[in-house]
Computed example of a mutant assay.
Amino acid sequence: MVLDQNENFTTIISNLTTPVPGGGGGGGCPPVGIQLEGVILPPVLTIDVILGLLGNIVALWIFCFKLKTWNPNNLFLFNLVIADFFALVSLPLRIDALLRGHWVFGDGLCRINLFLMFSNRSASIALMTVVAIYRYFKVVHPHHRFNRMTKRQAVYVSLFVWLLVISPRVPMLAYNHIKGSGNRTQCFFFTSYKEASRAIIILVGMHRILTVLEFIIPLAMLLFCSIRISSFLKERQMGKPDKVRKAMRVCAAIVAVFMVCFLPTTVTTVGVWAVRSYRPWDCNAFYTFTQLTIVSLGLNFLNSALDPIVYIFSSSMFRKALCSSLPRALRCCQDTGDAENMASSSGTQSTSQHELKSLRADRGSEAM
């Protein structure tokens, strides 16, 4: 038995280092099997599921039963909770497949699983960007008409975001992603050149383009919003210096979480594309980048566990509802360090007393 496994492993390694003629682009590579990700991903995804469910169940409870009033910001955050739950319910099937070494749930659940996994990434990025933009206008441009958005308008914005992120992923549901047969079946979106149909190759190409664009564009927006908020508070000297520093740390933390969760997948996706385009005969490089891309998905889903931190930092109403729900000994002291509250509680030298009172009244009921 051990000898057979060693022979199979040797055969796999030999195949990976030997180009297969007749594939796309003049070269082909054998199907990608579970190797590196089968060791790394199960514990990582299990931690993601446990932490993500704990944090998001608490968040959902707060939103549904403890939050007395809603504003657009809270509606955007609530949609982020929904996006996280979509991802978390899809992960146990993926963990099971990794532990078994093969996929046992059939073609239909394979399509839905992949659709939910990749839709979550897009939805999380889009909704975090919307929250950052909303925060930016509240702090830097408090009198802009964007800040007068109603709850109904916020619902329309949320629906538009969902339509925007789901539409490009719908074609994933139209194709079979099952590879192999018997107890060797795998549910993979990333495939080898040899076994891929033209439609799948086009679909995977679209996915890689989306993966890069939906990271670069939102990252630029997040950096812009964070830098402008920090510089605005610093220039206006709103609040005490320690509060300004805390606000800057919060902005930096949001960007850091974004980078940790989504940068690795973007880099490895570009690597796969580069090998596919310029070195189609290099099966070792193709295999390595494909495996790293799959492994980096573990960091993608880490955002589902970290998003509750975004809720706490981004909504004073959520913080207060959470603190009031805790036992008295564990309750938060006071809501401090909130960038938008600093903007609403302090004025600039060029702001009149009347405008300052108006700003405080406007921001008191809808902070962040």
Rank of each mutant, 00 (worst) to 15 (best):
S344V: 13
G298T: 01
A285T: 07
S346I: 07
L330Q: 08
T266K: 00
S350I: 09
K320Y: 10
N303H: 12
R249Y: 11
S345Y: 08
A321P: 04
G347F: 03
I312R: 06
M248H: 08
S277A: 14
S346V: 12
L302W: 12
G337C: 05
F301L: 04
C332Y: 13
L306H: 02
T269C: 13
V310P: 00
S344K: 12
Q349N: 12
R331W: 03
P264Y: 00
L292S: 06
W281E: 14
N303E: 13
R328L: 10
T336Q: 11
F262K: 02
R331F: 06
S344R: 13
V257A: 14
V270K: 00
D335I: 09
V255P: 01
V267P: 03
T266V: 07
C333T: 13
N300D: 14
V310D: 04
Y278D: 14
L322K: 01
S304M: 09
G347S: 14
S315H: 03
S304Q: 07
I312A: 12
A274L: 12
K243L: 05
G347D: 08
T290D: 03
F286C: 01
S304C: 14
P280H: 06
R279C: 07
F318K: 01
W281Q: 12
R249S: 11
T266A: 09
F262R: 02
N300H: 08
I254H: 13
D335S: 11
R245N: 12
A321Y: 03
R279M: 14
C251E: 15
D242C: 03
F286D: 07
F313I: 05
R279V: 07
T268F: 12
P308L: 02
D307E: 12
A305N: 04
G271Q: 03
W281A: 11
L306A: 10
A339V: 02
Q334P: 05
S277L: 13
F258W: 09
A253I: 02
A343Y: 06
T293K: 03
V270C: 10
C323M: 11
M259G: 03
C333P: 10
R279T: 10
P241Q: 05
P280W: 04
L330W: 15
D335P: 08
